[in-house]
Design a binder for these strands. Structure first.
Lengths: 207, 207
DNA sequence: TTAGAGTGGTAATTCAGATTTCCGCAATGT
DNA sequence: ACATTGCGGAAATCTGAATTACCACTCTAA
């Protein structure tokens, strides 16, 4: 289908194929389901031969790993870039923007939370480890924000570790539900709920 | 291995085999992982032949469905039985006991949350539907408690739907983390965190 | 223009695990 | 005690998908 390696394709062609495979995988994994997706189908959908597939990936799981990492990285970048612009804003504003950026990023395409919070769960030990890593990162993020709020006297001084993990879980649960819902819930309300929840969670009295 | 159908086994024997299979499945699915578990292994571990397996279940997935339903049902029964004894206690006490009973039930064996929140995710549309059902049930439960608290003036009057779903997500996330953690987190702290979070979530001002 | 080298797609191979079938044995009833 | 009925276990089959090998084609360079 594609013309030979005419233009400028030493390994740009490989990169393009990789991209086509990832795009097709996002579609296939979230419609048919990861387990039910055959490598053959994936290749057909991407317009790439199985031979090329194995040139880019060692197997189906590595594709999922890549997608999962990419989605999380993208969301994290959004959040970080927003927060950098609010370096010395008050804690409430920062939390407001943080959650808006996060929810905005992940709900920009319903397939994103579907892949991240449904398809990529319980697949393998390696994927589970990657999930853990990201929960840690997000929880650390929230924890830092909470401690920042505690500095300002908005929240009491205490250990926010468990609270942070719980909030990450709340976001995950809400987005998993959001993604499954028909008709779709408004993403704004999800963000708003998380804002209220997080503020209430960290400002509550220590015991 | 077992003696023939001597004693009292018209279909009690079937029930026993079913039980042995479920017990072995809980162990196997949570150690090796659901996907990696072969029916052969399951039968070997249970001490049951594949023939008998297909007499009780249509396949691996139905076993998982049964386990998932059983774990949730058990937890729900615990919670209901506790709340029935507190019919006219104050909302805070009810919430305290509710979460204690729930966390106590699900953390009584680390394999329970592992199966429920990791292995049983993203397996099939049917399992996903069953998950949805249970999230609805638990959310409705929490919602009712929140409205009860609103009656007493403890919480403002508002729609608690999203908050309830978020709290279910928080519990899920926390238990998923609990189950994966080494060394294990104290279950008490998880329950305590959820109590604080739920109270803060529903008593927070309406906007 | 033609030879050579690398690439793409298709088609065969292989492998693993699910499902079923069959034979031997134990238990009941006459 | 013996025939009959139905159960248990292991081995055979069968399916379906991952992985690899091969052939044809296109592009480059002399």
């Amino acid at each position: 289908m594609a013309r030979g390696y005419g233009g400028v394709p030493p390994e740009q062609r490989r990169a393009e194929r990789r991209e086509k495979l990832l795009t097709a995988a996002l579609e296939l994994f979230t419609s048919r389901g990861y387990q039910q997706s055959k490598i053959t189908e994936l290749c057909a959908l991407a317009g790439v031969s199985t031979r090329n597939f194995y040139e880019e990936f060692t197997g189906k799981e590595q594709v999922l790993l890549s997608l999962h990492a990419r989605i999380n990285t993208l969301a994290m970048e959004h959040v970080v870039s927003v927060l950098e612009k609010l370096a010395d804003a008050d804690p409430v504003t920062r939390i407001f923007q943080l959650l808006g950026a996060f929810v905005g990023s992940v709900t920009s395409d319903p397939r994103l939370p579907r892949l991240n919070y449904v398809e990529a769960v319980g697949v393998s030990a390696e994927l589970e480890a990657q999930h853990q890593e990201w929960v840690d990162k997000w929880a650390a993020f929230i924890e830092a924000e909470a401690e920042h709020a505690a500095q300002g006297g908005l929240a009491p001084r205490r250990n926010f570790r468990l609270t942070s993990i719980a909030l990450v879980g709340a976001a995950t649960g809400l987005l998993r539900e959001w993604q499954a819902h028909d008709p779709p819930l408004p993403a704004d309300q999800v963000a708003e709920e998380l804002r209220g929840l997080m503020l209430a969670a960290i400002t509550r009295p220590a015991r």
